[in-house]
Design a protein around this nucleic acid. Sequence first.
DNA 1: TTCGTCATGTAATGGGTTACATGATTAC
DNA 2: GTAATCATGTAACCCATTACATGACGAA
Lengths: 188, 188
Amino acid sequence: MLELAVLGLLNESPLHGYELRQRLKATLGSFRAFSYGSLYPSLRRMKVAGWIVEDEGDATIVAGAPPLTGRRGKVVYKLTAEGKERFVDLLAEAGPSAWEDETFGVHFAFFGQTDPAVRVRILEGRRSRLEERREGVASSLDRTRSRLDRYTLQLQEHGLESVEREVRWLTELIETERRSTDRPPATS
Amino acid sequence: MLELAVLGLLNESPLHGYELRQRLKATLGSFRAFSYGSLYPSLRRMKVAGWIVEDEGDATIVAGAPPLTGRRGKVVYKLTAEGKERFVDLLAEAGPSAWEDETFGVHFAFFGQTDPAVRVRILEGRRSRLEERREGVASSLDRTRSRLDRYTLQLQEHGLESVEREVRWLTELIETERRSTDRPPATS
DNA sequence: TTCGTCATGTAATGGGTTACATGATTAC
DNA sequence: GTAATCATGTAACCCATTACATGACGAA
């Protein structure tokens, strides 16, 4: 999750932790926020795994002059070849893990770098996931409507409408995807 | 979270674990689902804390006849006086914890048993929480719109609309609450 | 010189999930 | 008698959060 998001952002440009977190907020918007307490350990793990390295060239030390103390400045990370490979792999897997509530937003955010066929599969997976949920809520609502108090009812109905709204959104996106796949994008 | 939900349901009627989980699904709808792996341990903890007890009277054993083996049947729980007290306390606290994403739905589901003044505070808390988020997303969107690709933009806008929609919903609910508080409910 | 914000990191904790293991009850 | 579903529970793990600790750097 965090891992995919970090790989995705670093794939666009090298960044340091603090910056990464802000980009994360800006990219994922209202969907998810990560704290430093998860970001930094994650970066360490990814570094150990060999997917990212500290980026020299953004000269942390101009000539070794300022900090004789063990260096404490920005640590800019960039993707390694393995990291890019890993990112591509993660983007390519269009399994259920890509359309769950917590993950879908992150996958979607990197659709620009995702294969068109995979995009459609994920959108459809997400949609049928939500349709299942809608059925569950709707039928449970039908069965129990009369016994529910005002507030529980409100909650159910608002939930149902939210799900339906997202289904409509997905349907539009899927149609758009199909149109641009059938006759390839008007790049001519 | 789970705790509040369990107390709330058991406050309505005694239930056993399995039943509890289904009620949880029916009550919280699309907002949250809990697995047995969290439910049963939670029940154990609540029992140890003295908030719930196993309910005899729903005679697990008719006359001690069927299971000489260490008993393995339904375990029906009911609230103790302490449990009710705990529930009332949890319902009364109208702090930030009541209007975060994960918790709000559960609090809302038990609004029928919540003090009207507390209801309004929680609705307002939730609303201003979302308004903050809306501002954050909207301004970040204004600043970065041009640099965002198609998909990131779609995601941001859909997120923004979702937030705005929930704000409108809350505003309606708050108005309804106010109307029925100003001139007390038409129970006459 | 001190305040805000940029910047990195750790430790303790939390609140769940998945997968597994087991057994009772019901319907066919 | 066997499959489905009701029913209870544990162990291992996961993925994050909060709170804390530290320090650099620029602006007032």
